[in-house]
Design a protein around this nucleic acid. Structure first.
Lengths: 214, 214
DNA sequence: AATATATCGATATATTTTTATCGATAAAGA
DNA sequence: TCTTTATCGATAAAAATATATCGATATATT
């Protein structure tokens, strides 16, 4: 029973799909069809890999033709859940939180709809940023459970992150987008995706460091 | 001659090292030594994997004891190049750029020192944000080559990203931290790390989408 | 002092991810 | 119409990554 193991999409595939999507959006006017070969060339990937990634979405292509651009775009969006608004709570109205809120691409392109903002700074409570009212952190659990919000975004210092995550879980939030540099402990049925910029920076400086020292 | 292939650190390892680092910083007062087993438990990883990751830094541990906490921290920092200031140019003084600039952790913890900011909005030229003056984008090449700045950060809309990357490369920049959702084309000796938030969001919503539909 | 145990480093195995191959097929060109 | 070619989907091979095993060793326990 333990080894049921639902076959799930490889994470690298999930990371590449948004790239393809961005590309498709840019060329939608150009032509009707697109092949894996073309997409692969754009990104320097292997065509077979692109084909496998795309196959995950369930789309059926045509030999010698490829895929219909618009259909492929819609399939990827549906697969990622970006075709419908994903409601989210944002915790942390500091620099990062504010940037996330104002970054309109999230709403426009990825369907991420931040419906409320929370912060533990009393001075901010009741104020608005980017049209959203700021609430006290203690209200997360209650509001999340009543509004059935599925996603929580953590953009606060690491010390408070676990406590906020606990409150989110208690409120029934199923996915946490975590910008704090800590390992959150959550139940198995809650997905945590760490968007830690430091991780990305490490890859850059680590490679650079190696390269420049050779 | 083409297949020289320098043995390089696996990217997953580079991604995990900052996690260990953050953990080490949190416990430094707690004790003298730390074992892979303990670190692994903290993150839910396999101890052998942690040991391999750590081995990349060149540290030597002691059987039955583990590693000296402080030494390990310093080794990881040195390995990632975070022990010395990494000078960088930031292009884009919008929401994201400003957040990056103000996010003090980058400077304090990761040694990322943003020395100048560029934007193509004439109204911003000469102004200061977070103590840094804003320059016209056209000056990147000249300034980068004269100041020998190794890192460029791209925090602008996708349309302009490639052009800015070209200017960075021309100025001798060797590492680009790219926040724009496009595939940058650069010479082989330039490292590009894509810090695309959309990619991370895709992993979250993709998994959620699958989970909630089962 | 002898034995047990945790942990290291090294090596071997397993799993996952990427890349290559192959037959089938739809369009283009001879 | 027949051949050639690009591309698909499926399957196989290769490469990368993660996990397991094993002898050695330093500390703790009997």
């Amino acid at each position: 029973m333990k080894d049921q193991k639902i076959r799930c999409t490889p994470e690298p595939t999930l990371r590449r799909l948004p790239l393809y999507l961005g590309y498709l959006k840019g060329i939608e006017t150009a032509g009707q069809n697109i092949s894996c070969t073309q997409i692969a060339k754009e990104f320097g990937f292997d065509p077979t890999q692109v084909r496998k990634d795309i196959a995950e979405t369930g789309i059926i292509g045509t030999a010698r033709v490829g895929y219909n651009v618009q259909e492929l775009r819609l399939k990827i969006e549906a697969f990622l859940g970006w075709n419908k608004p994903n409601e989210a709570f944002l915790v942390g109205a500091g620099n990062l939180g504010t940037a996330l809120l104002k970054y309109s691409l999230f709403k426009d392109k990825y369907g991420l709809n931040i419906v409320a903002v929370f912060d533990d700074d009393k001075a901010k409570h009741g104020a608005y940023i980017a049209g959203k009212q700021i609430f006290p952190v203690e209200k997360i659990t209650d509001l999340a459970s009543r509004m059935h919000v599925p996603i929580g975004i953590i953009a606060i210092p690491p010390e408070e992150a676990q406590s906020v995550a606990d409150q989110m879980v208690e409120g029934g939030i199923k996915g946490i987008w975590n910008f704090a540099p800590v390992a959150l402990k959550v139940p198995e049925d809650v997905v945590v995706e760490n968007a830690r910029l430091s991780t990305s920076l490490a890859v850059l400086t680590g490679k650079l460091n190696k390269m420049l020292s050779i």
